[in-house]
């Protein structure tokens, strides 16, 4: 296993009375693609928010690249190299596609050069550079959301349900790009309800249920054990 880039230790998170995470521990290695699979309400998005500092954990710790970032501000985490594509995409609606990319860049040239790389990864965006966020289709928004997260040249990419609302064809397309991104050395933590596809593009996987990690193994192993997958996750 590669050196640990992200280490989550016994994280508990609450929304008021609801305990959404009940002591989650997991690890993502440098350049590794890790899937986080689980049913509706299992706590996947909650964990992503804790990692990004958008929700403060009640206890537990998060370490990134050897630093304790549990109490760090959200923008600091971005600066340290965590890219985030949230559930629901959250692209900047009033900014154009190109502006959505540039605004996330920390490059000297304002990101103009790097934006070209993003258009190479997601060609449909190239035809829409001047379109406003709200003019995009769901698939284009998803591509833009991932592309924007890549603009800060992250060491770790957090992807929360990129397949949500996409056609099977488009979903395959987007997840294949995710696989490419990981192959080029960016670590990926991919939260998905779409278990089969998520497992097929990742190295390892964690199964989360009711705020607890109930299984951790190689993706190929989980994938082979189809019965196990459906037992843990319901009808998939």
């Amino acid at each position: 296993m590669s050196a640990a880039l992200l280490e989550i230790d016994d994280v508990v998170a609450r929304y008021g009375q609801i305990e959404a995470l009940r002591g989650v521990s997991l690890m993502v290695g440098e350049g590794e693609a890790v899937a986080l699979v689980g049913a509706n309400g299992a706590g996947k998005s909650t964990l992503m928010k804790c990692l990004m500092g958008l929700l403060a954990p009640a206890s537990g710790s998060v370490r990134f690249a050897g630093k304790d970032i549990t109490r760090k501000a959200t923008f600091t985490r971005a600066e340290l190299g965590i890219g985030y594509s949230p559930e629901g995409r959250h692209i900047f609606q009033g900014l154009t596609v190109h502006e959505n990319l540039l605004v996330a860049s920390r490059d000297r040239d304002g990101g103009r050069g790097h934006a070209e790389d993003i258009y190479a990864i997601f060609p449909p965006l190239r035809e829409k550079t001047a379109a406003r966020g709200w003019e995009l289709s769901g698939g284009q928004q998803q591509m833009l959301s991932i592309g924007r997260a890549l603009m800060l040249r992250p060491r770790l990419l957090l992807l929360d349900e990129p397949s949500l609302g996409l056609s099977p064809l488009l979903m395959t397309e987007v997840l294949n790009r995710v696989q490419d991104i990981a192959a080029r050395g960016t670590a990926v933590l991919l939260a998905e309800q779409n278990v089969h596809k998520a497992l097929s593009v990742s190295h390892r996987a964690y199964v989360i249920k009711l705020g607890r990690i109930i299984k951790a193994s190689a993706s190929s192993e989980l994938l082979a054990d189809a019965d196990l997958t459906s037992a843990f996750l319901g009808a998939y």
Binding site: T74, F75, A78, F92, Q93, L95, A104, L152
Partner: peptide
């Protein structure tokens, strides 16, 4: 403008 449109997301892309 990004800040005015979505503060959380703006911070998540590294904007102070």
């Amino acid at each position: 403008r990004a800040t005015a449109q979505d503060r959380e997301m703006a911070e998540a892309v590294g904007i102070r």
